[in-house]
Structure formats: structure tokens, C-alpha cells
Simulated scan of single mutants.
Amino acid sequence: MSASGRYLRSLVACMLGCVFWVDTASAQSNNAGCTFRVVAGTSRQILRCREGLTIIAEDGARFALVDRDRNGSADAVRLRRKALLFDAPAGRVRGGFAVVTPQAIAAVRGTRWAVDVARGKTSVFVVKGRVAVQRPASNAGVVLGPGEGVDVEAGTGTLTVKRWPAARVSALMARFGQ
């Protein structure tokens, strides 16, 4: 199997629709309505999807595009490692867009936000718009606005929304060339 074949494979998930696993080492496919492009001079990738969704993946990010309603367009991502930056125009992704990690679910209808998975923790930061965040096994959650973030670890403790300091925001956004 080629290197790109090892990193990019398609499979069908019974309850979630079509799932397309992606590793940023592979950049030449069109899955779940998305096209992949490597940013020249970097190891980042930009995924441009139907309905105006844009995803910037940092090098080494491990995620799966999910087409829950099987209409050929991504409407969710399962993120397992590293960070993704999302830009989802309001009202364009029918039913909204969700990012599922081992520790959290972040759901939006139109915004720009980043999700980072590292060392048993998921961090969510909102650039613009609003993002609802909760643990997968909980109905309780928080809603983040611009400049706000939350760190979600395993467990059942209360999620605490914080205004992130400029240094933390700059460090995160630099990983996407922003």
C-alpha cells in the first residue's frame, strides 16, 4: 500500500454516515465534498468543502471528516490529535457543524474557531461567532463567544469559560499561519 493509502482511507460508519480518515501527510483527495491543498512552504493543509466550510489542519493533525446525513458533504469532524481551525459560514452547513474529540463536542452554526487535542485535553477557542461545548456523555455545557476558550479534560467537573490571554491566542493561531 502506498504512503498516501496508509494515511487516507475511506470507510462507512453505521450510525454516523460516511467517515473519511485523514492524516496531514496525505493531501490529494476529495472526500466528503472537500478538496485538499498543501499550503506552499509549510506542512499545513487547507480543506475547502462544499457549503463554504474551510478547515486548516496543522501538520500531524489526525481527524476524520464525517458525513452524518450521507449527502456527500462533511457536517462533522472527529479530531484525535493536534489542532484544526474552522471557518463555517452561518446557515451554510445544514443542521450545523460539530467537532467531536475524546473529551468534548463543539457544535456551531456559523463561526471561526479552533479545536486542539493534546495530552488528554481538548481546548476550544472562538475567534468569531458562538460555539457550544460539552462533554460527550453530558447534556450540560457552555457557550463560547469571541475571545473565549475552554479546556476540557476527562471527568465530570464543571466547564469553565475563560477569556484567553493574547499570548495563548497568538501561539495557537501561529500554528495555522494566522
Rank of each mutant, 00 (worst) to 15 (best):
2 S>W: 06
3 A>T: 01
3 A>Q: 09
4 S>Y: 02
6 R>Q: 08
6 R>C: 04
8 L>H: 14
11 L>T: 05
11 L>E: 03
15 M>W: 03
17 G>E: 04
20 F>D: 00
20 F>K: 02
22 V>F: 04
22 V>G: 01
23 D>L: 10
24 T>Y: 00
25 A>P: 03
26 S>A: 14
28 Q>G: 14
29 S>P: 07
29 S>K: 13
31 N>L: 02
33 G>S: 12
34 C>G: 00
34 C>K: 06
35 T>Y: 04
36 F>C: 04
38 V>M: 11
40 A>I: 09
42 T>D: 01
43 S>R: 15
47 L>T: 06
48 R>A: 09
52 G>E: 00
52 G>D: 01
52 G>Y: 04
52 G>T: 12
54 T>Y: 05
59 D>I: 11
59 D>F: 14
63 F>K: 02
67 D>N: 13
67 D>S: 11
68 R>Y: 05
69 D>M: 11
70 R>G: 02
72 G>H: 03
73 S>T: 06
73 S>G: 12
78 R>I: 07
79 L>A: 00
80 R>S: 08
81 R>E: 13
82 K>N: 07
83 A>I: 06
87 D>W: 01
88 A>D: 00
89 P>V: 06
89 P>I: 05
90 A>V: 09
91 G>Y: 11
92 R>H: 08
92 R>T: 12
93 V>E: 09
97 F>K: 04
98 A>N: 11
100 V>A: 12
101 T>Q: 07
101 T>G: 03
102 P>Y: 12
104 A>W: 00
105 I>F: 02
106 A>D: 05
108 V>P: 13
108 V>R: 15
110 G>Q: 04
111 T>S: 14
113 W>P: 09
115 V>S: 05
116 D>V: 09
116 D>P: 03
117 V>S: 13
118 A>N: 14
120 G>M: 12
121 K>R: 15
121 K>D: 02
123 S>K: 05
125 F>K: 01
126 V>N: 02
126 V>Y: 04
128 K>E: 13
129 G>I: 06
131 V>G: 02
131 V>C: 11
132 A>C: 07
133 V>S: 06
135 R>V: 07
135 R>I: 06
136 P>L: 02
136 P>I: 02
137 A>P: 05
137 A>M: 12
138 S>Y: 10
139 N>F: 08
140 A>L: 12
141 G>L: 08
142 V>R: 01
144 L>H: 03
146 P>A: 15
146 P>K: 15
146 P>L: 12
147 G>F: 08
148 E>C: 10
149 G>Q: 15
151 D>Q: 15
151 D>A: 14
151 D>S: 15
154 A>R: 15
155 G>V: 13
156 T>S: 14
156 T>L: 11
159 L>M: 03
162 K>H: 07
165 P>D: 04
165 P>R: 10
166 A>F: 07
166 A>R: 15
168 R>H: 08
168 R>Q: 13
168 R>G: 06
173 M>I: 08
177 G>T: 09
178 Q>L: 12
